[in-house]
Design a binder for these strands. Structure first.
Length: 679
DNA sequence: GTGAACACTATTTTT
DNA sequence: TAGTGTTCAC
């Protein structure tokens, strides 16, 4: 119906790009002129708008770029079919096609899912929307939850208008506004409201809470990105030591994954346990993808993508030219590359490397035999593949030779333990008759079992389990398994933090160009999306929020001095407690566009004037006063400012914010970092 | 076919 | 900066 067999594979963004590149090469299109990435983007956008190859080339007409993309799109799609593979967009689009074009299938699922609930509906894209419409328009038993202020996925096709027109799609829908918030303190909500109020395009709404006012939001203006990390690390440690928060209550959130590195190093040095979510995913790692490719090829010899990935991994002396020839022959004879490789001796141009090639196909075939013997459980089989393939050996050698820091063997072991669990969860008793029959009305009984819907499918052989595993492998993410039994700080992008909440949240990198990202400030729409992202970020915090920025930041190999994020200036200063170094006016600031933000001027200058000139705390901690010792009126000595009197003490996160008068000069500081001694 | 040395360049967010 | 692509000697 769609041109795929049941065991189609799902390719990830990496493989997708490889296919695009291949297609371009075959069509003799230089990738210097057309960047594979933008082509890939263009194709993805087209798919999300349900524009297929034919329609696309019609629409492209004579327009140069589009017509070239049209050719690549066509070839790319052919390659997908040849590989029996779908990309991420196809999974959704094809599902919709299936539902829209086949009344029997639609009925089947409508019967299956009588009541539909969609969460985060504001981040629905077109294919998802159409799928929902197909399933729900029968009986109208649908409930969606969403917040247009939290729409942050427009870059992948999410369309806020979908949630806004829900009432039109389902007339008579009952709309319930949920404006009372049970998560955050009043201060945090107020700050979030301040920010989001600056967006023009939104349904008006104001979060409120019956809860406490809570503590002020601490804004830390650090000198450098290292200072930023230092502040975050020390504050977390201090809060944990005081018992105010467990490590697992703390999260560090950032706009770009690249920002996590500094924090990781610092947390590591301070001995604070942490875990990074997102970024380079477990399943994106080379060694993991290699092993998965072995498994895929064993499972399905037609998987050319897997074949090409591993035919020379580890090195077998089979180079690009040989692979290219195999590809050509396979294409010409309409067989898979693996099949072609098996008969390498029959192809004149492959004879020379035939022995190498065949030792590879023999290896795969012997692995397949091993699998069929069914003597190993899934984990044992993966272990066998890891060793037999020679990948473990190669990695170990490389590690010794290059002195690599990351332990990639460790990752492979991790894969084993995952395989073990997968086996446990999906191994069936030999007989499994737990399926039900549904008559779809056309007299064709369709067999469906619950397992099919809920990933509880089971198999009684290791081969079967492998098949099940691979069906989902490209969709796995490690981020799902929040393990609250272990106590560690969580690091993740704001996008991944959506829907989660933490006692204490550190937002880092709050500078123009970082957040909002420099790519977004050109257009109003994008800037508003960044603002929604900030809104999401702020509202992740339950009790304490720390907003951190660095005057100087090393990013992408360059040191930049950026202005504080415009979003900071949008927050009522009364909600903030400012600390850190005063911003000097650097000569090398790229663009000062935000300086003259009209109405925000007073707030901005209020904020600036409160930045103190405090430097990093002195190393000596001897005789230092702890926050508990500090009381108003106490005379203290500061390492840099000398003698002063404490005017105000405000407990915050196990530490205390204090205001000290040094001979008429007032300074705000965090007690623990200030290094105060008794006068 | 391999690996080292060098040059180049693109830097958001994710299923 | 780091990851990728190119060139060259073996």
């Amino acid at each position: 119906m769609l041109g795929f067999t049941k065991n189609f594979s799902i390719i990830d963004t990496d493989d997708q790009q490889k296919l695009v590149k291949e297609a371009m090469k075959e069509l003799d299109i230089a990738d210097s002129q057309f960047k594979p990435k933008s082509v890939q983007n263009e194709i993805s956008n087209a798919k999300n708008k349900f524009i297929d190859v034919e329609e696309y080339s019609l629409l492209a007409g004579k327009e140069y770029f589009l017509s070239v993309v049209a050719r690549i799109y066509k070839r790319y799609q052919e390659k997908l079919i040849a590989n029996n593979a779908m990309d991420f967009d196809d999974i959704l689009v094809n599902m919709v096609k299936l539902l829209e074009n086949n009344p029997d299938i639609r009925e089947l699922y409508r019967n299956k899912f009588r009541y539909i609930m969609v969460d985060e509906y504001q981040d629905t894209n077109m294919p998802q929307y159409r799928a929902v419409m197909q399933l729900a328009s029968g009986n109208g038993n649908i409930c969606v939850v969403g917040d247009d202020d939290q729409s942050i996925y427009s870059f992948r096709g999410a369309d806020v208008r979908i949630i806004l027109k829900f009432e039109k799609d389902f007339p008579g829908a009952n709309v319930i506004k949920l404006e009372e918030n049970y998560r955050s303190t009043k201060t945090i909500l107020d700050a979030a409201n301040c920010v989001i109020a600056n967006n023009k395009k939104r349904k008006s709404k104001n979060l409120r809470t019956e809860g406490d006012q809570g503590e002020k939001i601490i804004v830390m203006n650090a000198d450098t990105s290292n200072g930023e990390a230092d502040f975050v690390g020390r504050t977390i440690k201090m809060m944990a030591d005081k018992g105010k928060f467990k490590y697992s209550d703390c999260a560090v959130l950032y706009r770009m994954n690249a920002l996590s590195r500094n924090i990781e190093t610092t947390l590591h040095n301070l001995g604070i346990p942490f875990r990074v979510y997102g970024g380079m995913r477990f399943y994106d790692r080379k060694e993991i993808k290699d092993i998965l490719a072995y498994l895929r090829l064993i499972n399905d010899p037609k998987d050319n993508i897997a074949f090409e990935r591993i035919i020379n991994v580890p090195k077998r002396g089979i180079g690009d030219t040989t692979i290219e020839k195999i590809r050509q022959y396979a294409l010409a004879d309409n067989i898979s590359m693996f099949e072609c490789a098996m008969h390498a001796v029959d192809y004149p141009e492959l004879v020379r490397s035939a022995s190498k090639i065949c030792s590879f196909t023999d290896l795969i075939n012997s692995m397949k035999d091993k699998l069929r013997e069914n003597e190993l459980d899934f984990a044992q089989f993966v272990d066998y593949v890891e060793n037999e393939s020679g990948i473990i050996e190669e990695i170990t050698e490389q590690r010794e030779k290059k002195g690599e820091i990351i332990d990639r063997v460790e990752n492979l072991k991790e894969l084993l333990s995952e395989a073990k669990e997968y086996d446990k969860a999906h191994r069936a008793e030999p007989v499994d008759m737990d399926s039900l029959e549904i008559d779809d009305g056309d007299g064709m009984p369709v067999e469906v079992d619950d397992d099919f819907f809920f990933d509880t499918a089971t198999a009684d052989t290791t081969e079967g389990i492998l098949g099940l595993y691979l069906e989902n492998a490209s969709l796995f993410t490690e981020g799902d398994d929040f393990d609250d039994s272990d106590d560690y700080v969580k690091l993740m992008s704001i996008h991944s933090a959506k829907g989660l909440e933490f006692g204490a949240v550190f937002l880092i990198g709050l500078e123009e160009g970082v957040f909002p990202s420099y790519r977004s400030v050109q257009s109003v729409e994008d800037t508003e999306e960044e603002r929604r992202l900030m809104y999401v970020a702020i509202t992740r915090a339950k009790k304490n929020l720390f907003m951190v920025l660095a005057r100087q930041r090393m990013l992408f190999g360059q040191t930049n001095c950026n202005q504080p994020s415009r979003f900071l200036k949008e927050i009522n200063p009364e909600l903030l407690y400012l600390m850190g170094s005063k911003r000097e006016t650097p000569k090398d600031v790229p663009q000062g566009e935000t300086n003259r933000e009209k109405s925000k001027k007073s707030i901005a200058s209020a904020m600036k004037s409160q930045f103190t000139k405090e430097k990093k705390p002195a190393a000596s901690r001897e005789g230092q006063l702890s926050p508990d010792d500090l009381i108003e009126g106490l005379r203290v000595v500061h390492p840099r400012f000398g003698e002063g009197v404490i005017l105000k003490v405000e407990p915050v996160g196990g530490d205390a914010l204090i205001t000290v008068d040094f001979d008429g000069m007032r300074k705000n500081m965090l007690a623990n970092a200030a290094g105060l001694k008794k006068a």
